[in-house]
């Protein structure tokens, strides 16, 4: 059976909130190392990869592999009943028909309990090759969201150029052009505002802004986001959580001309 308790319901609420517009039905794959999810969006342009490691739960118990087939809209309805600060426990039998969720308030003795029906989801897993990215950029997640939403007002696509001069996000639209350039920057007092650019070779890639703006819904999970690029391969956008848990998005580039 599975028993997994989060000290803060907000972690799962934020993760599900960040992916529910990209993915509707998906398996939460539970094993002794934690709970993982891998799913593509309907158009097969983006891939979501979540790992909530066993260490992120206290306690965590999962005797054998269990796939929890979840509709994320339904899960969202149940999670809305949890306060951010509540402790959240997930429970399931070995071959479950339903997922049991318990929300416990720390402030008072309120306990709420829900059973969510599960579904059989035949999901194909993709092998993601280990990649040494040519450019790895770490920046405030709020800054990345701002750049993506600002540029989406002008264009459907953004070109990301990483070079020794910095990283430039630029777009061309019917009403005109826009570009934002960031350089490495260290803020001693507020390291969450740091911008770090690691580059082994220059990169230039174009991506759909609609997807990037969607990924930015995960900004609530982490002050910083890491974006990794290599020419002609999907972009990796990673929001790191405690205990090496993470939420990753991969986005196929636009190629041509």
């Amino acid at each position: 059976m599975l028993e997994a308790k989060l000290d803060q319901a907000s972690i799962l609420k934020k993760v599900v909130d960040a992916i529910k517009d990209l993915v509707q039905d998906c398996n939460f794959d539970c094993n002794d190392s934690g709970i993982a999810l891998q799913a593509m969006d309907n158009s097969h342009v983006a891939l979501v990869s979540m790992a909530l490691k066993a260490e992120s739960f206290q306690p965590y118990r999962c005797d054998r592999n269990i796939a929890l087939g979840l509709n994320l809209t339904s899960l969202t309805k149940v999670l809305r009943a949890a306060q951010n600060e509540d402790m959240l426990t997930l429970r399931a039998e070995d071959a479950p028909d339903s997922l049991n969720l318990v929300f416990e308030s720390k402030a008072d003795d309120r306990i709420s309990e829900y059973d969510l029906k599960l579904m059989d989801i035949d999901q194909e897993h993709l092998g993601i090759p280990e990649t040494e990215y040519a450019a790895t950029i770490t920046l405030p997640s709020s800054e990345f969201r701002r750049i993506c939403t600002d540029l989406m007002a002008l264009s459907e696509s953004v070109t990301i150029d990483a070079s020794k001069d910095g990283v430039k996000f630029s777009c061309t639209g019917d009403i005109g052009n826009g570009a934002v350039t960031l350089r490495s920057h260290t803020n001693v007092d507020k390291p969450e505002l740091n911008v770090d650019i690691e580059l082994s070779e220059p990169v230039s890639l174009t991506f759909s802004l609609k997807y990037l703006v969607n990924f930015c819904k995960a900004s609530a999970l982490s002050h910083q986001v890491k974006i990794c690029l290599s020419n002609e391969v999907p972009l990796l956008v990673e929001y790191a959580l405690e205990n090496q848990s993470h939420l990753r998005f991969y986005l196929a580039p636009k190629i041509g001309d």
């Binding site: 593509m40 097969h44 342009v45 983006a46 891939l47 194909e124 897993h125 993709l126 092998g127 993601i128 090759p129 696509s157 174009t206 759909s208 391969v233 999907p234 991969y250 986005l251 196929a252 580039p253 636009k254 190629i255 041509g256 001309d257």
Partner: peptide, 14 residues
């Protein structure tokens, strides 16, 4: 213009 690629063109079915 540039064409949107599929993620399936990069990641293989495991």
């Amino acid at each position: 213009g540039k064409q949107q690629r599929s993620i399936l063109g990069f990641f293989s079915k495991a």
